[in-house]
Design a protein around this nucleic acid. Structure first.
Lengths: 234, 234
DNA sequence: CTCACTTTGTGCATCGCTTCACAAACGTCT
DNA sequence: AGACGTTTGTGAAGCGATGCACAAAGTGAG
């Protein structure tokens, strides 16, 4: 299954759940694609990787399709999660409702700051990182979330890997080194901001009638603020 | 410039900054690529889009390259940021140090909860969203960050767009509808977890000697925990 | 049953990104 | 100056994802 498809499945699932809440039981690829913000051909090709769950001339049954995507993504199982680093971000994550909704369950909170030890967040007690191994003995951990400062991230990662955690979600802005069998995904606010800044700068230069080098262009000035163009779903 | 390249530039910049801190002034594409976790050919092709900043037979000067990437990403400018939604996540973002480091400056915090109005976070006073327009009059906002619950996200987005904000970073798990001229990037914890879960499930099935349908495979069982394989940078 | 209409699933062309492989360019050593 | 080793920058090939266009498969009406 293509990575690009896997990355879109959660979007499809979320949109399907929303449709189900609204009491909609059937949807065409055209409608669903519009709601998600992709082309209908792409949606159909993506879904074709799951098997044949649509009915020609009719569309897809919302509940069936949602269940199938859940199954493929592994959300029918139970995924115990540990969060390491209980600063602002760690707390935000620990109290994030999105965790509980779909098979993810927080079973451990870790931080080496002695001031935090013993404190409870969302009913879970914060423990020092060296207790990770013991924790894993009792309750295995499938996914580790790193919400520590950058300098601690690699050490924390090594501890997680040593404890047998094979899936890591890294919020620290560093490239982690891990065995190939360990799956790491990084979420980085600052990278996202920089990408936005790049495009914003391009727009600003274009709107000022300048090219990338800062030279004047020949064409007329455009007040971009007045001409936002057609709407799209992102 | 390819989107994929733009997405990697922040990584390169971060790694270069780290090298500069360590007093390293020159680096080859091979070394830098290894530190970032990409192939050297890819790094060179990416950098070639910026112009010719390397010296054949020698490598790249760290400071020069870092400055050039900063310039291309627009980080030499000043990007005023507003955060909407002052829950756990909004607070984590507001106190995130990565903001200040590279040209990003928080100039507004908004939340419609009357209990939060007037409270200060990081020296900035929380204001209700309807004051956004007035705020923009005084101090323009280049980037809007949506850290609200999903149900409020589209309305908040509309307000930001109406106020002239053309770059939006969305942490709410919804697809926003905006004019084409507005740039939206989404960061979604729950999507990332689901992608991790998908791969984890695959590994689990493979390790158990099963294929995707749950049937037994013919080959021998492998204890994946004992064979983590070579290390890679992610 | 047959026809008209709708919508899926997919072969195929296309596009964009990655990787390879090498000539060009630079420093160094003799 | 010339030969040698190193590393960049880049055509070209390779590869995966996207978008098009249509046959296949379904529904419903007459």
């Amino acid at each position: 299954m293509p990575d690009a498809t896997v990355a879109r499945l959660p979007e499809y699932l979320r949109t399907l759940s929303r449709l189900a809440e609204r009491g909609i039981h059937s949807v065409s690829s055209e409608e669903l694609a519009a709601a998600v913000g992709v082309r209908s051909a792409q949606l159909r090709k993506d879904l074709s990787h799951l098997g044949s769950y649509g009915v020609r001339g009719v569309g897809y049954e919302v509940e069936t399709l949602a269940l199938e995507i859940s199954r493929v993504l592994g959300l029918t199982g139970d995924w115990p999660v540990a969060i390491v680093g209980m600063g602002n971000l760690g707390r935000a994550l620990a109290s994030y409702s999105g965790f509980v909704t779909k098979g993810f369950r927080i079973v451990g909170l870790f931080d080496d700051d002695p001031h935090l030890e013993g404190e409870q967040v969302g009913g879970i007690t914060i423990r020092p990182l060296h207790e990770l191994a013991a924790q894993v003995e009792e309750h295995p951990i499938a996914i580790g979330v790193i919400a520590t400062p950058s300098r601690a991230a690699q050490d924390v990662c090594d501890s997680l890997v040593a404890a047998g955690v094979a899936s890591i979600l890294n919020f620290a802005p560093v490239t982690l080194t891990v065995p190939v069998s360990v799956d790491v995904r990084r979420v980085d606010l600052s990278t996202e901001l920089q990408i936005l800044a790049f495009h914003a700068q391009r727009r600003a230069l274009a709107a000022a009638g300048l090219n990338e080098r800062g030279d004047r262009r020949g064409d007329d000035l455009i007040d971009a603020h007045q001409h936002l163009g057609p709407v799209v779903s992102r």
